[in-house]
């Protein structure tokens, strides 16, 4: 936002004042992350500045702890399978939703994305009571299903957005040239909406990786995930090891962001600019 040459003094002052405010706000956004990362390299035992010296001892503690390893393993297992389930079911459903209009479509759509809007504690309590009847509390399958349902709306939304800008004549062209519907799906639709599917899958995985309320209700000690282990750490013994875990999660967040940016760019190249953010 360049200042026009005819700007008055007042406008100039406001222009720079606003710049300062905006930069201040971005510092507010980044501030907590900037605070936590250096502290994780502290060689002392305290959780505040000044640093006593630099060391990797808390990373050593993190990577050599059985509890944290188990938490990472659980997060990876649950996240992986929940993402697959959410992506497959969500993509197929998104294709269906974009295929035709039928009565009650809007209501159905609202129901399908409701896991995004319903408070997590309600989902958690409902699943806890439901799983209790079938002995599914404290099982991988229970957690995977729960996280798949929570991640699926993101797949539905991102894939639908990609499909809306997808040229449906390509389907007809494929069909008229004799391709079976399955072949059309895998050879024509899939490659075109792949970036949308990938973004949706990323969202689903991130949702699972960040989710802690359902895990708190449904998982026992053996199925604690990374955020669940952090929750206990913050509540019970706040040790600097948790800062190493937090920094690892910030790095993962950075990777997510880069991959999604890349996917978005690719998507824009393939189907033209569209309203996907992040």
């Amino acid at each position: 936002m360049a200042l026009p040459p005819y700007a008055t003094t007042g406008q100039r002052i406001w222009h720079y004042a606003f710049k300062v405010i905006a930069i201040g706000l971005f510092i507010f956004l980044l501030f907590p992350l900037l605070t936590i990362i250096p502290l994780s390299f502290n060689s002392g035992e305290f959780l505040y500045y000044p640093l006593k010296g630099l060391s990797l001892r808390w990373y050593e503690a993190f990577f050599s702890s059985d509890e944290w390893w188990r938490a990472m393993k659980n997060s990876a297992i649950i996240g992986f399978f929940a993402t697959i389930l959410a992506t497959v079911l969500g993509t197929i459903a998104a294709v269906g939703i974009n295929r035709a209009d039928f009565p009650g479509k809007q209501v159905l759509l609202a129901l399908l994305i409701s896991p995004m809007m319903v408070p997590l504690v309600i989902t958690a309590l409902s699943l806890y009571l439901f799983y209790a009847r079938f002995g599914m509390n404290d099982t991988y399958i229970g957690l995977i299903l729960a996280h798949a349902i929570l991640g699926m709306p993101f797949v539905l939304i991102t894939v639908s957005a990609t499909l809306q800008s997808f040229n449906t004549n390509l389907i007809r062209a494929g069909a008229s040239l004799g391709a079976s519907p399955t072949k059309v799906f895998f050879d024509i639709i899939m490659p075109n909406i792949a970036p949308g599917i990938a973004s949706g899958a990323m969202f689903a995985f991130a949702t699972s990786l960040d989710e802690v309320v359902v895990v708190l209700f449904v998982a026992g000690p053996a199925h604690r995930t990374l955020p669940r282990q952090m929750f206990t750490g913050i509540r019970e013994q706040l040790s600097p090891t948790i800062l190493a875990a937090a920094t690892v999660l910030i790095v993962i967040a950075g990777l997510f962001m880069l991959v999604l940016e890349y996917l978005n760019r690719r998507n824009e190249k393939m189907v033209g600019p569209m309203e996907t953010k992040g």
């Binding site: 992350l33 936590i36 967040a253 962001m257 999604l260 992040g278």
Partner: peptide, 11 residues
């Protein structure tokens, strides 16, 4: 903004 957005709630 996106880095903050993607960072875990717990972190």
């Amino acid at each position: 903004l996106l880095l903050v957005f993607w960072t875990s709630l717990l972190v």
